[in-house]
Design a protein around this nucleic acid. Sequence first.
DNA 1: TTAACGTTTTCTTATATAGCCTGATACA
DNA 2: TGTATCAGGCTATATAAGAAAACGTTAA
Length: 181
Amino acid sequence: MVSIANIVGSGSLSVELNVDQLGTDLDVPYTEYDPENYHGLYVRLVEGGPLITVYRSGKYIISGCSAFEELEDTNEKFLEHLTEFGIIESELDPGFTVQNVVCTADLGHSVNLNALAIGLGLEAVEYEPEQFPGLVYRPTEFPTVLLLFANGKVVVTGAPDVHIAEEAFSSLQSQVDGLLE
DNA sequence: TTAACGTTTTCTTATATAGCCTGATACA
DNA sequence: TGTATCAGGCTATATAAGAAAACGTTAA
């Protein structure tokens, strides 16, 4: 069982934007545009909520969502705001897709990371405790990266879908259990 | 040697995780 | 002044975006 920590998605408005002006015009709790720091416009529709980064090209990224419903809702509301300003047509399909799902999970017991590094196969593992306390595991059968910690906690990242994250974690759990037997 | 390109890297944001380091504060 | 505790920042990971800087290569 994994729980979602963060979802990142992106889409395109297919229109060139004046992001500086857009930041001023939008009637939302938070906007920030500081081209000396970063060239993207930051938008939050809800205080402390997901962050939308908008680019001059019309492309945008939404990050900081902990549920797919929240991501879809944020995307829809953002498009509604832009439609109100006449920036886009209401029927526009931005081709919005989920790019990265970050999940956390727990093996339920502590693990010996040194032994695990050997058991999982050194070619798929990076473990340098002096640099970072977690073991980095890149399974060949899933497009994800898993970070394992000595207390059994796991971070799954890079998955394009939560089901892939779940499968990757289940596969890891089976391998760990097999090594413990 | 210098200019003009082309390519690559860095930056920023969100998020979980844990260990180490640094600085600030509190107390003896 | 010395020690203890706490908070915060950094380390690594993925992903999108695009500007800017840092490179490398080629030609004059």
